[in-house]
Design a protein around this nucleic acid. Sequence first.
DNA 1: CTAAAGTTTCAAGAGATTTTGAAACCTCAA
DNA 2: TTGAGGTTTCAAAATCTCTTGAAACTTTAG
Lengths: 178, 178
Amino acid sequence: MTPPASAAASDPELEVADTVGRLMEFWGFKRPMGRIWALLYLAPEALGAADIGEQLRMSTGAVSMALAELTKWGAVKKTWRPGERRDYYEAETSIGRLIQKVLRERELSLVQEFAETLAAAERKFSEPGASEEDLVQFKRTRLRELQGFAKLGESLLSALVSGKSIDPGPLLKVAERR
Amino acid sequence: MTPPASAAASDPELEVADTVGRLMEFWGFKRPMGRIWALLYLAPEALGAADIGEQLRMSTGAVSMALAELTKWGAVKKTWRPGERRDYYEAETSIGRLIQKVLRERELSLVQEFAETLAAAERKFSEPGASEEDLVQFKRTRLRELQGFAKLGESLLSALVSGKSIDPGPLLKVAERR
DNA sequence: CTAAAGTTTCAAGAGATTTTGAAACCTCAA
DNA sequence: TTGAGGTTTCAAAATCTCTTGAAACTTTAG
């Protein structure tokens, strides 16, 4: 009844891997990354690239690329075994830290660039002939409102990242007009 | 120098629309939705579907579909003008409320389904022959850890949604082993 | 009821993204 | 230095997603 040495992972295991994969995808990463991470997370010991590919039915290349990106994000670590030549991979288990890293390095700068663009646009609106009636005024006001949101997002994120307590009040306030 | 009556929106305006579009895309919506919403948000009065298509260079169909989805999320509202036959659309300006709606109706249930799947997988692991040594024990433990995170996400989200104050402490605690 | 104006649908086409697998490339032992 | 064992690269193929635009459908004025 025991499956051959290097068979595909058990059913429930693959299901979890797929679910994590979908979640990660939703979060802006590629699905295979989530699948691999989950597989490693549920494995009691490091796995080789070949194992991973076999269990998840992925090609060598796909496994390699996904592992590279996971490593870049610190979600997976390479390890070696004494005599062995091949690399083994294990999952980073501090999920909290992983999330923080992504928030810090990706989300935060995304929001900052957004604020950047808004500010630039607002500038361009005044610059030209300084005139152009109050339609421009209106648009500038709206742009400033958007900028307010960008700032809010920035503070929420940096609070989350640095573990400070968060006050979501502003979200509601802004939600209630002005 | 004035562009023809129904020309494309001004440069900085299109830029903002594209930026919002990209942001929305990152957030799991389709890019055209963000572009349209931004255009409407910067317009002092409601616009017709044709205007939108012309300014953003989108086909009739694309505009129609994007507007339908935006409406479904409450991000855009239809309005009528006295004699006119055609529909006009305007942006919902309470961004905060929009965000809350998405968190409540989409993110929250996503996390719940995730927790669901994890719990189901854990059950399957014990069920079979009840035995299978302690490798199964290990996997069950890991699954429970993941479930802890799902719960954490659930509370963060519902706190955000209901405007309660948030304590990100748990994120760090879980990050620091166990 | 009919026709004009406007909107929605949806199959086909266009485009973008992901996956594959073979070749190039490392690294180490002998 | 050579060759075995492994890993990475990358162009081509397979997939998936989005956009288009014409046809069907709705609505309202006359």
